[in-house]
């Protein structure tokens, strides 16, 4: 696994606003596979993607992408590396003043000197891949949530990246849109030979498409392996998350004081 890892994290420590988000996270993300990073809300899954993309710098530890140590890269080299990365944001993050066509054409216009007719062909091919060639003249405000993410996906693969990161791609999607996204992620990964990193807390969808998964909680990796290995993981915490149990190692009740004194009954009758 080490030799085929496209992304490597070693003892990554990251804090924000005095709160420690990651406390020594180590992780290998294999090349050419779909890796799901799961965990409860607020555990820093999106932060992890931003660390990999170099938008945030860790307090300590190493983050290597395609052999480059991301936190040590100079601005220019980092931006060059990002041309090999695509990222699908939770909101889609389409440019609201540009049409669907222009959104997908944006990275091509900025990073290549392709003639206009070739840009047109590439944009239409990418939109065809996500099933939205017919929507090229629409504005982002005219798209549904699922369509927005598909356009954003077309934009993020416009430059044929090596790595694509999905930030909560299934959040807030209806079953059909979710099914479309699951199919697209799987198909794009196999047809383009991408390395895909998927951050999500939608367990069934994520496990159905990933080759490898890891679960993050309390600033560290609490379980990792193939979907089959995780389902039979010895950690109760991992199983509670995967099975969605309301109580367990992660308690239902937020830590609180003595209930009797809160209700003012001195323990009698409670």
């Amino acid at each position: 696994m080490e030799s085929s890892a496209y992304i490597t994290l070693r003892n990554v420590v990251f804090s924000r606003s005095g709160r420690r988000i990651f406390d020594g996270v180590s992780l290998d993300i294999p090349r050419g596979k779909v890796t799901a990073i799961m965990g409860p809300s607020g555990t820093g899954k999106t932060t992890l993607l931003r660390l990999i993309g170099g938008q945030l710098r860790p307090d300590s530890g190493e983050i290597t992408v395609a052999g480059h140590e991301v936190p040590k890269l100079r601005r220019k080299a980092l931006y060059r590396l990002r041309e090999k990365m695509g990222m699908l944001f939770q909101s889609g993050a389409l440019f609201t003043d540009l049409s669907v066509y222009e959104n997908v054409a944006f990275p091509l216009r900025v990073h290549t000197r392709l003639p206009e007719d070739m840009i047109r062909d590439v944009v239409l091919m990418k939109l065809e891949a996500v099933g939205l060639r017919g929507a090229r003249d629409l504005m982002p405000s005219e798209l549904s949530g699922g369509m927005t993410r598909r356009v954003a996906l077309a934009r993020s693969i416009a430059l044929d990246p090596e790595l694509i990161m999905y930030d909560e791609p299934f959040a807030g999607q209806d079953p059909i849109a979710m099914g479309v996204l699951v199919k697209l992620i799987r198909d794009l990964n196999s047809s383009m030979g991408l390395t895909s990193v998927l951050v999500s807390h939608d367990v069934p969808e994520s496990l159905s498409i990933c080759h490898y998964a890891c679960i993050i909680a309390d600033g560290r990796v609490i379980g990792e392996g193939t979907p089959e290995q995780l389902r039979t993981h010895p950690s109760e915490r991992v199983r509670q998350f995967l099975e969605g149990k309301p109580d367990g190692p992660v308690p239902f009740h937020y830590p609180s004081g003595d209930a009797a004194s809160d209700f003012g009954v001195n323990g009698e009758g409670i």
């Binding site: 931003r50 993309g53 938008q55 931006y79 060059r80 590396l81 990002r82 041309e83 990365m85 695509g86 990222m87 944001f89 939770q90 909101s91 993050a93 389409l94 440019f95 609201t96 944006f106 990275p107 900025v110 990073h111 954003a152 934009r155 993020s156 430059l159």
Partner: peptide
């Protein structure tokens, strides 16, 4: 709306 972040991630 993460437009600035997405621009950064596109190498812009």
């Amino acid at each position: 709306t993460e437009q600035l972040s997405s621009m950064e991630m596109m190498g812009v």
